[in-house]
Amino acid sequence: MAPFLLLLFLLSKAASDEIVVVQPGDNITLNCKAPDPSNIVLKWIRPDLEPKNNYVFFCRGSQPQTGNQYDQFKGRVELMKVDLENGNISIILKNVNYNDNGTYECRVLSGSRRRKREVDPLTTIKKIQLQFTDPGSKDKNSTPAGRYVGLAAGVAGVMFAFVVAVVSVRKYKRLRDNRPGTPADDKAGDVQLL
């Protein structure tokens, strides 16, 4: 039963992150909404890229900062200005390529001011997995994520069927052992006579 629960946990974690499927050359929107739009400090990162203090996109209010932006994103990322006052802090990534494949995190300032000892006062509020379709595919259903989800669903189905089979066999054995005239009842009767 423990492996089944572990699989459910892993599937729920994977389902909580958004997957965006793209093709090279697409312009895509990575959606994010700030819980408190009054004083926005926004940072989009790719945790797999080095150095860690760099970013995909960073802005205070509506003023983008490019000082520590990764070179591969310079000139290709912009903040959606639509509905910014209501917390829409989505970004547009232009002309995506295979190097853009990965997980993007939308982070905002947690609390109204920085704490001096805190290394990163920003809180991740959304994760987006950017994936490309297979080059020969005409549809967007043949992504690695699609195969992973399909495999996980298949494994979950097999595990569920196994659990149902085990429970059914146990119930059947319990019912069979409790019928009158079974060898288990005769042995119990012999013990009482002694």
Rank of each mutant, 00 (worst) to 15 (best):
M159S: 05
V119A: 10
N141A: 09
T133K: 15
R117T: 11
F162I: 03
A156Q: 11
L130N: 12
R174W: 03
T133M: 14
A152H: 05
D177N: 13
L130V: 15
R114F: 12
K126R: 15
R107Y: 04
E118G: 02
V164I: 04
A152V: 08
L151S: 08
G150T: 09
S110A: 14
T123P: 00
Y148Q: 08
V119E: 09
P135W: 14
K140E: 11
L122E: 05
S137I: 10
A145L: 03
V158E: 01
Y104H: 10
T143D: 00
Q129T: 13
G157P: 01
R113P: 00
T103S: 11
K126Q: 12
G154D: 07
R113C: 07
G157D: 04
K138L: 14
V158K: 01
F162L: 07
S168R: 02
K127R: 14
V163E: 02
T103H: 06
Y148E: 11
L130W: 13
I128Q: 07
R115S: 12
V155H: 01
V166L: 04
N141I: 05
L130T: 12
A152E: 04
T124P: 06
V155K: 02
Y172P: 00
E118N: 14
A152Q: 13
P144R: 05
K127Q: 14
A152Y: 07
F160Q: 01
V169R: 03
L130A: 10
G157H: 04
Y148W: 08
P135S: 15
D120T: 10
R117C: 07
G111N: 06
K138S: 14
V158S: 02
E105G: 09
S112R: 08
V155L: 13
L175A: 08
L109S: 03
T124K: 11
V149G: 01
K116F: 11
G150Q: 10
S168F: 03
R114A: 11
L130I: 15
V119W: 06
G136C: 14
I125N: 06
S137D: 14
C106V: 11
A165R: 02
Y104M: 11
C106H: 05
M159A: 06
V167A: 05
F132C: 11
K173W: 03
V149K: 10
R113I: 09
K126Y: 03
G136K: 15
N178S: 15
V158R: 01
S137W: 09
R174T: 07
D139W: 10
D139F: 09
T124H: 04
L109P: 02
V149E: 06
D139K: 13
L109W: 04
R115G: 07
M159F: 05
D177C: 05
K116L: 13
N178Q: 12
K173Y: 04
K140P: 00
G111K: 08
